[in-house]
Design a protein around this nucleic acid. Structure first.
Length: 199
DNA sequence: CCATAGATTGACT
DNA sequence: GTCAATCTATGGA
């Protein structure tokens, strides 16, 4: 029996507990339809960040700020922030509206539009998308993407015909909240980020 | 107001 | 391995 083509993910997919969404995001394809043509990647590594008062490492831990407002917005939208004043990081908003929760997109396997990604990155091969800042730069994402909806429009998410095997670990670069294994990734993918996780 | 830490990356010793 | 790039949020004087 044919498994059929990947299909676009709807609002219900995102309106669930953040950890569940994170696990299911691995293997999904992020597609961007641009004037220049299609650009797409397969997500191979993500991290969950929970809501207000739930997760000390989350931007939403101490409540709303101008920066994190979209973490409390409609699920399926993007939360994009500037890291270290230099790099953009892409997050997918989860939970129900008004309740914070988001999944950081850390690494991906390029599928379509590699030439434009390489041109934005000034690099090639694994260095295209093996880190959150690198992935955002490869896709041409910046703060203009903050609040964009993945459910409608030229930017969307497609679930895979067959779900890959997903492994868990501690999040990368998080010293607090140890013991929380909120990083999800494909163990068999050479496209995961290089940094070492905290167990 | 000033200091500091941070969901990072790239260049360099 | 070290370090600087530079924005956001927080905490203390």
């Amino acid at each position: 029996m044919d498994l059929g083509p990947a299909r676009r993910v709807g609002r219900d997919f995102f309106a669930r507990p953040t950890l569940e969404v994170a696990a299911d995001l691995v293997g999904c394809e992020l597609r961007h339809r641009t004037a220049q043509g299609l650009e797409s990647v397969e997500l191979v590594e993500v991290e969950a960040y929970l809501g207000e008062g739930e997760d000390p490492a989350s931007h939403a831990h101490r409540g709303r700020t101008p920066r994190n407002r979209n973490m409390f917005e409609t699920p399926g939208r993007l939360y994009v922030y500037l890291s270290y004043g230099l790099h953009h990081c892409l997050n997918v908003v989860c939970e129900s509206r008004g309740r914070a929760g988001a999944v950081l997109l850390r690494a991906a396997r390029p599928i379509e539009g590699l030439e434009r990604m390489a041109s934005r990155r000034g690099r090639s091969g694994h260095e295209l998308t093996n880190g959150p800042g690198k992935l955002a730069q490869a896709l041409g994402a910046d703060l203009e993407w903050d609040g964009r909806d993945l459910v409608r429009g030229s930017l969307g998410l497609w679930s895979p015909p067959q779900r890959p095997s997903v492994r868990r670990s501690g999040r990368i670069g998080i010293s607090s909240a140890q013991g929380r294994r909120y990083r999800f990734f494909r163990a068999d993918s050479p496209w995961v980020s290089r940094a070492k996780p905290s167990l």
